[in-house]
Design a protein around this nucleic acid. Structure first.
Lengths: 209, 209
DNA sequence: CGTAAAGTCAACATAACTGTTGATTTTCTT
DNA sequence: AAGAAAATCAACAGTTATGTTGACTTTACG
């Protein structure tokens, strides 16, 4: 046999690796400045390659933007799909977004572009919360979808707010603080209900839908 | 007297109003696409004025971006400074961000640009929460600053997530749902603590700092 | 050592935006 | 009707980006 079965494709100067480098630079740029202001020229500069090389991997600017945003879906999906206990999920989300702020930034840009979360991952996530909400281990009348929005909002935005307010942060400590506050909130809330009869009344009334 | 006291400045074709129109168009554009991709050319097109007119109001693109972001600080400050009860504050925030999604979007872009909230407004807001946290009407060990981040994250991001998932929404209903879920969360949390001994343990241990 | 893939380089045509300038027109006040 | 502020218009020079093309160089496999 002239060419063996396994490595059918010879890779002279690893085409795929170059593609990955381009995507990486592009992802950082989108995370920093948003998809609208991504330019292939700048990406090539950052990746340290020639502009025309980039064009051999992505025919247009929009292709590149699409590839970046697509990879985001995978990443968030992977994070959410790992099956585990609820406490672990919170720890995991907190660590994930603190350690990968660029993914949180990408997510925000994604939402700002009026795109919903990738359906599959989001549905799985909300499904998990729904099971929790219907179990005897949670309070009554929990709106699972709303809870999903809330958890996502906190997880994605907190690291960015923190960085904006305090500059560089110590990841491990920040992740712990974030996870702790989410847990405290979910377990006990913030207010003593007996001191807020009006508030309690105002949500006790009707079912939401 | 040739020129009387009160209206010293004659306004032929209301300079100030034109400025406001420019700022409005610019704000919408920044809210949509982010500060990086604001162009004076596009702003002028949207405001229905000549490009050079815009340059008479704002010498450079960056001046315009600065003016837009500056106005954001005022707006959020005004919203937060209105003194009132906690329940009203939640209702007010929910309504505000549902009814003015562009301000939420601006806020996100502001945070993504690594800028902290305008100090004055933010400090007042956190101060309010701190007083609450130290009162007997709240649970113990509440981290007021963390709570501020959380509330802001929810209020700003929820409307955007909702729009992304469901397209157009009915503002009044959406605001009510948002306020209700925040209140429920703050009052009761989500989980029944007695069913989550591990979680309770994991946050009971040390003080955060 | 030859060959082909992977990448570089220089150049070109288009397009959009930035600021700036000077002449002109519109609009309002007095 | 005069005069001046506010706005328009046309033009210019400079920058940066988009895609595309063809010739060239580097790298590594067999």
């Amino acid at each position: 046999m002239p060419s063996s079965a396994a490595p059918l494709r010879p890779r002279r100067r690893d085409f795929d690796e170059t593609r990955v480098r381009i995507l990486g630079a592009a992802r950082n740029l989108v995370a920093e400045r948003g998809p609208e202001s991504l330019s292939i020229a700048e990406v090539a500069r950052r990746a340290g390659i020639d502009r025309t090389t980039a064009y051999k991997h992505f025919r247009t600017r929009d292709d590149l933007v699409g590839a970046v945003m697509g990879s985001l879906g995978d990443e968030i999906g992977t994070m959410l799909e790992r099956p585990m206990g609820f406490g672990d999920l919170i720890d995991h989300m907190a660590r994930f977004f603190i350690e990968h702020p660029e993914i949180g930034r990408l997510t925000l840009h994604h939402l700002l572009a009026e795109n919903p979360f990738p359906r599959a991952g989001w549905d799985r996530f909300v499904g998990q919360l729904e099971r929790l909400a219907n179990s005897s281990r949670s309070q009554e009348h929990i709106d699972a979808e709303a809870l999903g929005h809330i958890m996502m909002a906190i997880a994605v935005l907190w690291p960015i707010q923190l960085r904006a307010l305090e500059g560089d942060i110590e990841p491990a400590a920040a992740a712990e603080r974030l996870a702790r506050e989410i847990k405290r909130l979910l377990l006990f809330g913030v207010l003593r209900p007996e001191s807020w009869p009006d508030l309690v009344d105002s949500i006790a009334g009707e079912r939401s839908e």
